[in-house]
Design a protein around this nucleic acid. Structure first.
Lengths: 204, 204
DNA sequence: TTGCAAGCGGAACCATGTTCCATTATTGTT
DNA sequence: AACAATAATGGAACATGGTTCCGCTTGCAA
């Protein structure tokens, strides 16, 4: 059992991807990044295939579901967003940290045309997305939430999953996608949590 | 110039709709109500046509855009929701009235599978919806908002349109559409407005 | 060099929204 | 009552976009 070098994505216990396969996959990822940025995450698959100089079948071979492609493209940024929580928590007091991280998440979603919408579409083609996001972001948010509650800066009893979902929906105001509006509404949401805090602070 | 009886929808300054036309239109509306309730507002047009025992062409003759059909089906309920604002305002203090009306709106949107999503989809087929909703609901909400601000129960500077949009998005959590979650998040939003009020009340 | 499984391309299929037009039905007029 | 004008109908046809399928090609190990 020789361990040949593995491609970034490989089924365990099996041979590594063929060289040309890896090449196409990389081209696909590259193209998807471009196309998603230009036309949003709901760009036609054909468009991505063409941009990558690849057949449709090849797209589906590497990314059986549309959402697999999206996850592949954004996983780095999702992780970065999750990691930002700890950094922010170190710099600010709990409630402020929570607020800032929420805005950080808004900034991420808000600049990916169609991502937020896809996240909540319920379209089976995107089914893997909510799971992926929740799995990675919930722990991060939960940490911030716990600290803020412990500091009595916000009310308790808020579900991270619910909050995450709310931010996601607030970021999908159609195509006009006014990120400023999303930011204001999320800010209102955070203030709502402060309103029920044990220690009632003076609002700015 | 004899005023013949007019169909519910008729271009001004023109002959009334033919008798069979009115019949089909009524059947269509009837069927749409059923189908929307059963399969959501994004049900295939063909399904509605079939349910009404009508050809596809007939659907598009009476409702050139998909959204026209939706508006026709829900206009009564939208108006009722708008009218509820005045009633509620008479019964409760300003902030409470605002809160209750917002929940009223959530209840409306939340029980119409897919309506909230359509409202924010940006899909040109639904383009008339946001306009219609905004036009009818904004004045209602503005009244409540003004009173609450005047009573110094909430902060000022909140845009009714933005708030309406936010509630709409919060109501489209995919198909699972947990109305409880939407209610909690909207409640948080309202509390957020209270947090910035001049007179800071004691939270419950 | 050669055999074969991995990988490829894109035609074909399905679902859905929308348009078009030959056919049918209603209605005011004669 | 018969007719002409035209409103209204139904559904085939077109467009778009996701997904599947399969015969051909190619990298790789023997």
């Amino acid at each position: 059992m020789k361990m040949v070098k593995k491609a970034s994505v490989e089924p365990s216990q099996t041979r590594p991807m063929r060289a040309d396969g890896q090449r196409k996959m990389a081209a696909l990822l590259e193209a998807a990044i471009q196309v998603f940025a230009r036309s949003g995450v709901d760009a036609p698959v054909r468009e991505i295939a063409e941009a990558a100089g690849v057949g449709l079948g090849t797209v589906y071979r590497h990314f059986p579901q549309r959402s697999d492609l999206i996850v592949a493209v954004f996983q780095g940024q999702v992780k970065a967003c999750a990691d930002a929580a700890a950094v922010i928590a170190r710099k600010y007091e709990p409630a402020e940290a929570l607020s800032r991280w929420m805005q950080r998440y808004v900034d991420f979603l808000g600049t990916k045309q169609g991502l937020a919408a896809a996240l909540h579409s319920g379209d089976p083609a995107y089914s893997a997305l909510p799971e992926y996001f929740d799995q990675h972001l919930r722990p991060a948010l939960n940490g911030l939430l716990d600290e803020a509650v412990r500091a009595e800066a916000i009310r308790s009893g808020i579900e991270a999953k619910e909050l995450l979902g709310a931010v996601g929906t607030l970021c999908c105001q159609g195509p006009h996608m006014d990120i400023g509006s999303a930011r204001r509404m999320v800010s209102l949401l955070v203030d709502g949590m402060r309103y029920g805090a044990i220690k009632q602070e003076e609002p700015a």
